[in-house]
């Protein structure tokens, strides 16, 4: 039984550094994550595949994960 503490905007813990991971099997290439990432981290690649083009710019804000209608984004906290 979970009783997890989730953050307000996103269910992602507000921790850095984060690695953005796209689950390509679930992604429908709708473009919402790309449009809402203020840091230009995500971009359409070949065949409109969503690529983590600028991982170093990610601030771990969780907006992409928050708005992805297909739960295809996970933000992983890198091992320290």
């Amino acid at each position: 039984m979970g009783c997890n503490i989730v953050t307000d905007l996103s269910s992602v813990p507000r921790l850095r550094p984060a690695a953005v991971v796209i689950n390509q099997a679930w992604c429908k290439k709708c473009g919402i994550c790309i449009a809402f990432c203020n840091k230009g981290v995500l971009a359409f690649g070949e065949g409109n595949r969503v690529e983590v083009a600028q991982p170093e710019n990610c601030v771990g804000c969780g907006l992409c994960e928050n708005f992805c209608p297909d739960y295809a984004i996970n933000l992983e906290v890198a091992d320290q």
């Binding site: 099997a25 429908k28 919402i32 209608p69 297909d70 739960y71």
Partner: peptide
């Protein structure tokens, strides 16, 4: 993945 169209808002409501 669910049957909703690409970008459909329903997935966000469920989240």
């Amino acid at each position: 993945p669910h049957m909703w169209c690409p970008g459909c808002g329903n997935g966000i409501v469920l989240h």
